[in-house]
Nucleic acid binder design. Structure first.
Lengths: 157, 157
DNA sequence: CATATTTGGCTATAACTCATAACTATTATA
DNA sequence: TATAATAGTTATGAGTTATAGCCAAATATG
């Protein structure tokens, strides 16, 4: 039984529940959940020579031929400056190409190579499969609702 | 006017929807949402001289007097090594104290000071208030369900 | 009891994310 | 034409997280 003179943790008891005071915060729970998902995603993507950021950028570029780096940054909620190294990495891996646009010599039109499209497709399939496994104890409806709730935080209607 | 020969993004059109291919992933949506919540939380906590990690640790220590650093690390899902600098920071700010435990001279019993307890309380109130504002377009039920879903990812039953 | 292993805390380090400021070249605007 | 704004870039700093290894103390095992 618990000692009566103190609320201190019993070394013999499991160290869970010490964060009760934080569990009411959505942010805390989400930080923990996202940590799990990101670690898993990073591990999966590593097999394809991709990281989360490069995969995200590659996906957008595949789906949006001739997108510019600024548009990419806006779409992924990142700073323009941070896209540069990501694009560099993808370009050096021959997964995308920087193409000058004749009408505006400042910007690049980003286009995925055939290898890039294939790599993205394979990584995407693996990623969805892994997420399915990781979220196996959520019904499809619950999962859809989770996404819906997250999107309402992202872009409040 | 949009160019007709390409699916490229029209510079005049809003740069939204370029990430359709990622929106099916729970992880992607959660990364975006957590980014918003964390940025807001960090801004709020900064007014109290705290960061997210130090606030989390302080909260656990307040609620669990004489907790050890290892227990804290386990509770917050972090490495023991990373707790050290956090504890150092809290101790130097006189928000907590390291107390030697006579029965085990290896470990410290962490206890919040009165200032620490007050600081935590004030920061916690501000944090909950801000989260309420940020999640105003979610009903209390939706918010509770969101937390429930996140917890099921965290610790799959 | 003596040795070996484990545990708690610590240091250093490295990879990665994210934000900011400043710069160049180009385009648009007053 | 002079000025603003835009696209991309570079450099940098703060913060988070993981790993490896260290020391001292405690515990387990022979």
């Amino acid at each position: 039984m618990a000692r009566s003179t103190s609320t201190s943790a019993d070394p013999a008891s499991p160290v869970v529940g010490l964060d009760r005071g934080l569990r009411g915060l959505v942010g805390y729970n989400m930080k923990r959940a996202v940590h799990i998902l990101q670690a898993d995603a990073a591990r999966v993507l590593d097999e394809f020579g991709l990281r989360i950021t490069t995969f995200s950028a590659l996906s957008v570029i595949c789906d949006t031929p001739d997108v510019t780096q600024s548009q990419l940054a806006a779409a992924l909620n990142m700073e323009r400056s941070n896209t540069v190294v990501i694009i560099d990495t993808l370009e050096q891996a021959d997964l995308i190409g920087r193409h000058r646009v004749p009408t505006d010599r400042r910007s690049y039109a980003l286009r995925a190579t055939l290898a890039g499209i294939k790599r993205r497709e394979a990584a995407s399939v693996a990623l969805y499969a892994h997420e399915d496994r990781l979220l196996a104890n959520l019904t499809p409806q619950e999962r859809a609702q989770l996404i819906a709730l997250l999107r309402r935080i992202d872009s409040p209607d």
